[in-house]
Amino acid sequence: SPVALPPFFMRGSIIQLADGELKRVEDLKTEDFIQSAEISSELKIDSSTVERIDTGQSPNAVLIQFSVGELKAQVCVEVLVEYPFFVFGQGWSSCCPDRTTQLFELSCAKLCVGDVCVSLTLRSLR
């Protein structure tokens, strides 16, 4: 089943960066993710390119296929159309920005094939 939208995507939600700084979700910049990942001991930032967007099996859901990192690992996630992803250099983007704005008051761009989203990997499991 698709991942439901968590409460922290609501405009005005307070997000704590890795250095302790607090920002509203709508004010986050690409650098905030990059800098937070740099000082994280567990997480590493990676880029995930949108390769396909298909209709999901549930109502209002989409299947998004990502190609992750240099190794182009394939990851497919099913989310609601309003689920926002953070695109490098662009900010919040969803498959249905009007709905994201309507439900969460979060300004969004349209998520498209070729967009490069912020994703995370564990630094090391070895």
Partner: peptide, 19 residues
């Protein structure tokens, strides 16, 4: 007011890759 960690905004943890 609830405070959420930055990494909760990233929807999935990608497969671990060797460095």
């Amino acid at each position: 007011v609830p405070v959420f960690p930055w990494h909760s905004l990233v929807p999935f943890l990608a497969p671990t890759q060797s460095d």
